[in-house]
Design a protein around this nucleic acid. Structure first.
Lengths: 229, 229
DNA sequence: GCCAGATAAATAATCGATTTTTTTAAATAT
DNA sequence: ATATTTAAAAAAATCGATTATTTATCTGGC
């Protein structure tokens, strides 16, 4: 009797998973922080069982650390790990982009243009970044979507979340933001022209520029981990 | 007062996770099968909560599919996905192996020799494959260990599990097994010689040969999914 | 005979309470 | 004062039962 078929009817567990994932990527929790499950339960108004199931999934996904008999904690941040994430993202996303350019069809081209336009518009009209972030993720997802490998896409998605955890802590830099937006446009152009070499090169630069922003967080406050606790 | 520090004291949840992961990779459950949680609970003698937490983790890891309100099922097998897994493994493991050869030190060389020797011995003395499989996984892990990227290693591990899910269904082929063992030896030799080009090429061949074995399962029974239900 | 709707059975998800383990605090001895 | 043991508090993990949802079965109308 459902009016519309639900893609996957939500459960308390899946809802709290989505919420926590977003909050973790957005840096709502301090790096290294131990999660107080009971507090979370009250904060998010959710039962213990669904909460624990979500935390388990997040740990398997890499957004939490789990230590037997002593719960969950937020992974610390380190210059070294940021390098790893950025470098791996460079490799995998670059690889996927090349494949996508080789295989993407007309529908993909249309999606690319649409995604870039949506992103550009959001940038102008909205003030709070939430929607922009969503569209930004969606844009990069579209770039590599027709690469042909489900597993590669899965890993890229995971790396994106990891990368964003660092990037969103970085300072707001309107100038660089504008440059990044410009690159988004050029990425689409090169993809449409099927210029694999140039496209890959630009994607590399794009990620590196983003990396520079994220890195500020570390060079500013000295080496090590800028954790609260 | 613990005599030895436990690396991470086991919990019911972590134990059932390990067990199920192994059983899933070993094809103990039919592809596409819906998991009857209550039956599992009795079979494995474990409570509902730890079991569900383990299933949630396995779903996030990619060894199970989770659909809200209708539980968990074992992913189906397909020629197409095997191709994807093999190809992605080829890319990532190849990349990691090259890096490992570039960065691996003397300790790594020692570990390599040790791992290959252990594998060779297990092959001769033991009849049941369980220990061989463990050592085989360990050998490949060692090959790429010093690649420098935690995330790459993580993905490779995941792909290995996925690949093995297919490989272990394939027929026993002693001749090919012997060829694969020979390649293990040669991989170590090339790694020690730091011959990146040749090493990568051989690893490619090695994975491809393994892939051929796994593929039998599909070409034998015709295209599609060789599922029970 | 076949389909829509209602009912019953089975299964998934969640809750509330209990048990186990770790962490913190206090007490005692060196 | 410092270290070691003991006791108390807090937190994590697990259990047993309840609730919600899906799946299977039945019924009457066409």
């Amino acid at each position: 009797m459902n009016q519309y078929i639900q893609p996957s009817a939500s459960t308390a567990s899946s809802r709290i998973y989505d919420t926590l994932r977003k909050d973790l990527v957005n840096g709502r929790f301090a790096a290294g922080e131990k999660l107080a499950i009971n507090a979370l339960k009250d904060q998010y108004q959710v039962g213990l069982s669904p909460l624990r199931e979500a935390l388990n999934k997040l740990a398997a996904y890499g957004l939490l650390l789990q230590e037997n008999q002593r719960g969950f904690r937020v992974p610390t941040l380190s210059h070294r790990e940021l390098d790893d994430i950025a470098q791996t993202r460079l490799s995998l996303e670059g690889m996927a982009f090349e494949q996508a350019i080789a295989h993407g069809d007309a529908a993909w081209e249309a999606e690319l243009l649409a995604a870039e336009h949506r992103l550009k518009c959001a940038d102008m009209t909205l003030d709070k970044d939430d929607e922009w972030e969503r569209l930004h993720t969606q844009f990069h997802r579209t770039l590599v979507a027709p690469c042909g490998s489900v597993w590669l896409l899965r890993f890229i998605e995971q790396l994106h979340d990891q990368f964003d955890r660092y990037r969103r802590l970085g300072p707001k830099m309107p100038v660089i933001r504008q440059e990044l937006d410009q690159q988004h446009h050029e990425l689409v152009e090169l993809a449409l022209k099927r210029d694999v070499k140039a496209a890959r090169k630009l994607l590399d630069e794009h990620i590196r520029k983003s990396y520079d922003v994220a890195l500020q967080r570390f060079t500013q406050h000295g080496e090590g981990a800028p954790n609260k606790r």
